[in-house]
Amino acid sequence: MAKTSDKKSPLQHHFVHLNQQYDASQMGMWAFLITEILFFGALFTAYIVYRLMYPAAFGAASSHLDITLGAFNTAVLIASSLTMALAVHAGHTGSTRGIIKNLIWTIVLGSVFLGVKAIEYSHKFHEHLVPGPSFSFPLYPGAGSELFFSLYFAMTGLHAFHMVIGIIGLFILIGMAAKGRFNQEYSTPVEMMGLYWHFVDIVWIFLFPLLYLVLRHH
């Protein structure tokens, strides 16, 4: 960090002032998030196409997912977004203690989400719902249900991978906060991590109805 200039300043030498550096960070993060939208977007597009092709199979396969665990996880993730927003808020008010406390809560809630996901995955493995040679879905045999579970694992898997990366990032932020890197003038890394975490939350907000709520009224 900025060893060329004042050791205590977070301003890197290629920026004129902190506001310029902040704007650049923000734009860079959003440019990254746009690529993420399209990254997940390809899977969502595949989902839409196959759901149009196999509406009944998608309905039957979706109703087999555990709606209680899915809804619980949605609530957990929204709560983690709240604690992330509170961490960013603590950064803006210059409370290092507030940053660390809320980031720990975010990690805890993110881990609960991943734990529930692991339970769901292990159920799917035991029920032979993992696409491949041993796949079997007697309720609605055929390619459609296998495609649904392929997309289920691809989409929730990619999402869970993003959560793991996010949790690693949160640990790094806690380390930075503990070293006293953040103050009222500068907490940009916390804020950028917040953008990423909220984005991952938005992905789940769409995954939940598309995967768990296809045909529940039958």
């Binding site: 992330m84 927003a85 769409f206």
Partner: peptide, 15 residues
């Protein structure tokens, strides 16, 4: 509902 929730997160949480 999902779009509304997404917009709330974008507008308020993501500032």
């Amino acid at each position: 509902i999902a779009i509304l929730k997404g917009c709330l997160v974008l507008w308020f949480f993501m500032h």
